[in-house]
Design a protein around this nucleic acid. Structure first.
Length: 576
RNA sequence: GCUCCUGUAGUUCAAUGGAUAGAACUGCGGACUUCUAAGCCGUCAAUGUUGGUUCGAUUCCAACCGGGAGCACCA
């Protein structure tokens, strides 16, 4: 419909001897203003030498002569808006479309045939998996799914820091631990907790006693070069525990990866690439180290290889770029990190493109805000973190408490409470703009009311409940409903929650497109809140189970919610 | 010090340069013994300051004030 209107408006404007570089046809903020509007009259008023309202009136008159199908009225309003209203039956057809496309409603083919690599959730073995990692994983998975709905071939990569100073500090911290090294009798949780504590102890001690720097550096070198049997044993065991544990967390969070890469792998290629860059004059020597001088590109300067010959994080990132492309030759390679790394990525992306010109215009850094505690930034170095697992468990417990009087088997409750808890957590992350920090407020995070994942899930469940009732009443709810009903009721758009819901459902594909092109999942979340709110009003004001068109609309609502929630990586339960 | 991000109801968040700045939480007030009240309806309440660009600015630009992050051998 947007395209039809755009063409029509364009035709009219050209016929008046005017040129519009681009014609905006969009949804008005208020549905009472109509279904679509255009502002061409205001943008063209000056060149036309007319006042916007008069020009709008002229354009509207010409548009009326075209008698466009399904357009029931064209109105001109105040400064110069032209508003269009669309016939209600048009939206019955869009409900039909939803019932036909089902789980695919909203998907598009904008990137069909392209390959998109998305790297996210940079966890570090030996360190705690905290709520910040939940945030990263939630965002990474949602972006991945959004990309999948462009019909592109998407692969998810996970890159982990399994070497580096934090590992050395953990191993150093082991000798400061008062409890013994975990054995097979300990749970995986206990094992990783032990490692996290060792790291915190090592890091704190190191901060207070800078004189041990050489010792830590020596351990670091041993880890890289694998020259010390004892260090190797501890390292291999700890690394294995961490990886196993992360896998468990990914599963709980509903994400999966196609490939895993480690800093221990990227170090070698990184060193090689940096040395090539040095001989090509891309990098230079300074103070015994190899650096990338970013000043001439308006970015800062950073060390790639230290004077003792070890690659830094930046060098590893350069090595990784090559590894990733070899593993999956992508058209777009997205890296998702917290925004504290924005400058770092400006630097490495520039360096990578100088080294590997074929990656020009293919690299994209998407950054998100940080998860913060009321006291400030979280720090695994000081142990001042909230473990992801603890938080999920707490949330699940809180959901279960709320479900005590629900008639449901204990097994079902267990499954559903976890779905609700994860929804609450993920939604609170995805409902706001990506770049912004989230101040973690436990009581808020544990509430399931208002603008929340459970609110959306609840709407879905209620819809399911009505649909069951409708089926009991003998209705067959499928895409053929349109042919079975006579629609002779003329409804007023502003006051009828049914037609509002219908119109919102029809907008879903546009919402998806926008979220994809802006890498902004929050458009989907915000849409879900509006959509659910609209359904709840509809539900409260109209009996549904006795009307086939209403049941069909409810079914379409369910598919839309299901699909939108899927894009966010959130499940919808049948009951709750 | 330099660079980047950021400032919207009491609180947490929305708003491709458009119409009366939307929600949620909180407060206050309702409806309902009909399909799950984790719900529905109503109500109080906001664009840090000063300029500029524009028909039109929360949005773009400048300055100021406030908050955060990053800046050489950590990741």
């Amino acid at each position: 419909m947007k395209e039809i209107l755009r063409d029509s408006v364009n035709k009219v404007v050209l016929g008046m001897g005017l040129m519009a570089p681009s014609i905006l046809i969009d949804y008005p903020a208020e549905m009472s203003h109509g279904d679509l509007y255009t502002n061409v009259a205001m943008t063209l008023a000056k060149t036309a030498g007319k006042n916007p309202f008069d020009l709008a009136t002229e354009i509207a008159e010409e548009l009326k002569k075209l008698s466009i199908k399904d357009i029931t009225s064209i109105d001109v309003v105040r400064p110069g808006f032209i508003n269009f209203s669309i016939d209600d039956s048009y939206f019955d057809k869009s409900v039909k479309e939803v019932l036909h496309k089902k789980m695919h409603y909203g998907k598009n083919e904008s990137m069909k045939g392209k390959k998109i690599l998305i790297e996210h959730t940079s966890v570090n073995p030996f360190k705690v998996f905290h709520i910040g990692h939940i945030m990263q994983n939630t965002i990474g998975e949602a972006l991945s799914r959004l990309m999948e709905w462009t019909s592109a071939d998407v692969q998810r990569f996970c890159y982990q820091g399994d070497v580096g100073r934090h590992v050395a500090l953990t191993i150093y911290g082991l000798r400061l631990m008062e409890v013994p090294f975990p054995s097979d009798k300990n749970s995986l949780q206990e094992k990783v907790n032990f490692l996290g504590q060792a790291y915190a102890k090592g890091a704190t001690y190191f901060k207070e006693h800078p004189e041990v720097a050489d010792e830590v550096q020596a351990i670091n070198k041993k880890v890289y070069e694998r020259t010390d049997g004892e260090v190797n044993d501890v390292y291999d065991t700890g690394r294995e525990w961490s990886l196993e544990y992360f896998e468990e967390m990914f599963k709980i969070l509903g994400s999966k990866f196609d490939r895993y890469f480690f800093e221990s792998q990227s170090a070698g290629p990184g060193v090689k690439a940096v040395n090539e860059g040095l001989s090509n004059g891309i990098f230079e020597k300074s103070d015994g180290a190899i650096i990338f001088n970013g000043e001439k590109y308006g970015i800062h300067t950073d060390v790639l290889i230290t004077k003792v010959g070890l690659p830094t994080y930046a060098a590893k990132e350069i090595g990784l770029a090559e590894i990733k492309y070899n593993a999956f030759p992508y058209d777009t390679g997205i890296t998702v990190t917290a925004n504290e790394q924005n400058d770092f990525f400006k630097l490495t992306i520039k360096a990578i493109q100088l080294l590997f010109p074929f990656l020009e215009n293919k690299l994209k850094h998407v950054s998100h805000g940080m998860m913060k505690l009321p006291e400030g930034k979280m720090s695994s170095r000081t142990g001042d973190v909230i473990a992801g697992r603890d938080f999920i468990d707490e949330t699940v417990a809180s959901v279960l408490e709320k479900m005590t009087d629900r008639k449901m088997s204990e097994d079902d409750k267990k499954i559903v409470s976890e779905e609700i808890a994860i929804a609450a957590i993920k939604f609170s992350i995805l409902k706001q703009t990506l770049g912004k920090d989230i101040v973690f407020d436990r009581t808020k995070a544990l509430s399931f009311e208002g603008d929340s994942g459970p609110y959306v899930q609840y709407s879905f469940v209620r819809a399911g409940s009505v649909l069951r009732k409708g089926e009991e009443n003998g209705f067959v709810i499928d895409e053929n409903f349109v042919d079975k009903v006579e629609r002779d009721i003329v409804v007023s758009i502003t006051e009828n929650s049914e037609s509002v819901l219908k119109r919102l459902i029809a907008r879903f594909p546009d919402v998806v497109t926008r979220a994809q092109s802006e890498y902004a999942p929050h458009y989907v979340s915000q849409y879900l809140l509006t959509l659910s709110g609209s359904f709840n009003s509809f539900y409260a004001s109209s009996p549904i189970a006795t009307s086939l068109p209403r049941l069909a609309l409810t079914k379409a609502f369910q598919y839309t919610v299901h699909n939108a929630m899927w894009l966010l990586g959130i499940k919808v339960p049948k009951e709750m």
